[in-house]
Every structure is written in structure tokens, then in C-alpha cells.
Design a protein around this nucleic acid. Structure first.
Length: 156
DNA sequence: GCCAACGTTGGC
DNA sequence: GCCAACGTTGGC
């Protein structure tokens, strides 16, 4: 049973274009420092798919689709004292944070703006659209996934 | 740049 | 365990 997710990234930090240029179009998804988001990372399985969302962008959009190619493992950036993701409370014996690896599957020719998604029937309960939602890793319901993929095809 | 929403910290 | 203060996220 495949599960669906949504991953947020600020394009000024790491965009879907950056992923397209990465070796093997694959990257580790480091830097998640929120427990709820971390627990969703832990729940991911190889083969799961996720939307790549550009947050803090103008406009914010769903930009494409990635596939989980490696399940959760320790986020070693937490151990690097000079990393912005350093966390003194995470040790190699007892890692606090995890990351997964994702591979680019699809870049939407027309990214789907948040503003548009808010008007789409079937997405009313989507976590991304909840007022005040800040979760950077979140589950997407099967139905929501299908609706959004349909939009991306219709936009071709 | 503003600010609402939310998570974390730390005094008590 | 409560909760005020503070820091961060992220849309607008």
C-alpha cells in the first residue's frame, strides 16, 4: 500500500530545479526539526510519492512529484556543529532527527498555486490548506492526491 | 515587512 | 503541569 505525502521547501534554499540538477536527481531531505514532521518521515516507505511544495515563494506552489527512495535514517546534519541544522541534543547513539532520500519523478509544467488549490473541490480538508498550517512534512489523502494530479494533467 | 498561528523553553 | 515569553513559519 503506497502512501502519499507533501514536502515543503523554500525554493531560495532548495527548489525543485535544484533537485532536477542534483546527481541522479536525488537528494536527502535533511533539516526537519519538528517532531510531528519527523514522525511522518519515519512512516514513509520506499516507493511512496510526495508533492514537492515551494513554501515562502511568490506564489507558493506545488511544483512536482518526488519518490521516496530511501526510508528514514539519522539526519547527520544534526551532528555537524557548523550546520544550520545542528542540534546538540542529537547524538550518534541516540539520533533525534531523521531524513529520507527522494528522487525527482515529475516537474509540473504549470505549478499549482496555493491560491488555486484553495478553490478546488475535494481539497477542503487538506492539511496544506488549513489555516495556520506549518507542518513541513504532511500526509496527503489518496483522494487529494488524485485530484491534484488531475489538475496537473489538465494544465498541460 | 506584517502578523497570525504554532511549537518550544523555562520559571514557578 | 501550567503558562507566559519567545522564536519560527509562511501566507499575504
Amino acid at each position: 500500500m503506497r502512501h502519499y505525502w507533501l514536502l515543503k521547501s523554500e525554493p531560495s534554499t532548495f527548489s525543485i530545479g535544484d533537485l532536477a540538477r542534483a546527481p541522479h536527481k536525488t537528494t536527502c531531505w535533511e533539516g526537519v526539526r519538528n517532531y510531528q514532521a519527523r514522525n511522518f518521515l519515519k512512516a514513509m516507505a520506499v516507493g511512496d510519492l510526495a508533492f514537492f511544495y515551494h513554501s515562502n515563494a511568490a506564489p507558493p506552489v506545488i511544483a512536482g512529484v518526488v519518490e521516496v527512495v530511501r526510508a528514514a535514517y539519522p539526519d547527520y546534519f544534526a551532528w555537524r556543529s557548523r550546520s544550520v541544522y545542528f542540534d546538540e541534543h542529537s547524538s550518534k547513539d541516540n539520533p533525534r532527527w531523521v531524513m529520507v532520500d527522494v528522487c525527482l519523478r515529475n516537474v509540473f509544467r504549470r505549478p499549482l498555486p496555493l491560491e488555486h488549490l484553495r478553490t478546488v473541490r475535494g481539497l477542503e480538508k487538506m492539511e496544506l490548506l488549513r489555516k495556520g498550517s506549518r507542518l513541513s512534512v504532511q500526509p496527503v489523502r489518496d483522494r487529494e492526491w488524485a485530484v491534484i494530479l488531475g489538475l496537473s494533467h489538465a494544465a498541460r
